[in-house]
Design a protein around this nucleic acid. Structure first.
Lengths: 241, 241
DNA sequence: TTAATAGTGTCTATAAGACATTATATG
DNA sequence: CATATAATGTCTTATAGACACTATTAA
């Protein structure tokens, strides 16, 4: 039961949902997690790919954010190191079941973190590469528009913040971090400028260890303030139009 | 009646509201429009000041944004030259009438635009100066927190965009625009740097007219793209901590 | 002619872009 | 020692900050 110290007016209420845009970097591409909508005559957009999400459960969810965290965990099995609200979309038309409003969050995950279940619903939950602000399949509801906004937010915020670091595991090298930026921004980034920028902003600190690969090893770093964003005083590349 | 091509599941639904944070610059201060909550035993926060807003009307409102525009017009009688979504807040606790989620927009208005009705509800709708990210009266619901986020968003966005221009009428002088920035940012801004920045970004164009006051007249400008935001390649003042 | 505000110019500081150079591991 | 990648250095460019200086109106 919902706590109602004061009775609520008896207006008809819109449907309330929460959706989560979950990004990762995989195979040097930005990818987004999608789920397949169930089939059935009474289902909206049966068989379509959609952002993971669903109705707010007023008994289980204490807030929109805990609801988003719940849905994130249900689909990925992990806690996202970064979650922020993207915005909300609501109208009479967006869901054939009636007036609905969705509260959208977006999350960044390191590649390694997620083990999508193989088996039962393997075909129902999958990463899809983001190409040109879009994903290949036609999405359910207004999710294509929401995804476009999420990608734009991720890109533009990556121009002046440490956001792409959350696509990496807790320890990473600077070349790895640079590549995360390049994947998100979709363009190469100058190594020297990148290093100066990141190091002088004191976003990261050395762990003391090194990552050994086939050639010269690279120093390992971690975020100084895990979960927090650092903002740079300038955008990455002053876009010249 | 709501259109229901497909029946909706019968979960209990949260209350859905829209609130609007309306800013203006008045008397060289940032001000926000507040409304007084009605008195009454069945009213939440009776007599408290609150952000203008209320329930989504699924019959009248086609979307969250049109709902926000409606509430804005109801309180101010004008169309805001700038409106953007701030975010949403929802939890079991924020409204004593039950689980509720509010979709919050924020708007900027020129000082001159608004004539709050004198008379009937004169005491019910009023501008309140923003001092130190707060407003004097204790606000209803979680509106103090929402207002703080709105102010922070306005401030930080003003560091790198043309946002404060929407606190001014369609035609304004550069000293007036500079003062709008100073009011929002709460600090003085260098005149020379300010002018170079604004003029080289081609945000504004001269109208050809001048504003005559007590001394040297100033050239009048207007926005080149009314309703749009221009972003600068750097933040206004690289904050040194 | 003075006061006040509008508008310009000069110099410095900061951080990014381009790109060459040096360093250090593996095989 | 060859190769590949990590890391640094040098030079240029863009734009903000500080602040002095000039311009134009009303009274």
């Amino acid at each position: 039961m919902t706590k109602t110290a004061i009775p609520a007016p008896n207006y008809p209420r819109p449907l309330t949902t929460v959706d989560v845009v979950i990004f990762t970097a995989l195979d040097e591409q930005l990818q987004v997690l999608l789920v397949k909508r169930p089939d059935g005559p009474k289902e909206p957009f049966p068989g379509h790919w959609a952002l993971p999400g669903g109705f707010v459960d007023v008994d289980k969810d204490t807030s929109l954010e805990t609801c988003a965290l719940r849905k994130l965990k249900e689909k990925t099995g992990v806690d996202a190191p970064y979650l922020e609200q993207l915005g909300s979309w609501g109208s009479a038309e967006r869901d054939p079941r009636g007036w609905s409003a969705t509260h959208v969050y977006f999350a960044l995950l390191p590649q390694a973190a997620v083990q999508l279940e193989k088996g039962a619903n393997a075909a129902e939950v999958a990463w899809h590469p983001v190409i040109d602000h879009k994903v290949k399949p036609k999405l359910a509801f207004d999710h294509a528009e929401i995804l476009a906004v999420a990608i734009e937010r991720l890109r533009s915020k990556s121009e002046y913040s440490s956001l792409p670091a959350y696509l990496l595991p807790a320890e990473f090298t600077l070349p790895e971090l640079q590549q995360a930026y390049e994947v998100v921004l979709g363009r190469p980034v100058d190594k020297s400028a990148f290093r100066t920028r990141v190091l002088s902003a004191e976003v990261v600190e050395e762990t003391g260890d090194q990552r050994y690969t086939t050639n010269r090893p690279a120093a390992l770093y971690r975020l100084k303030q895990p979960g927090a964003l650092t903002f740079f005083p300038r955008t990455f590349s002053p876009r010249k139009d």
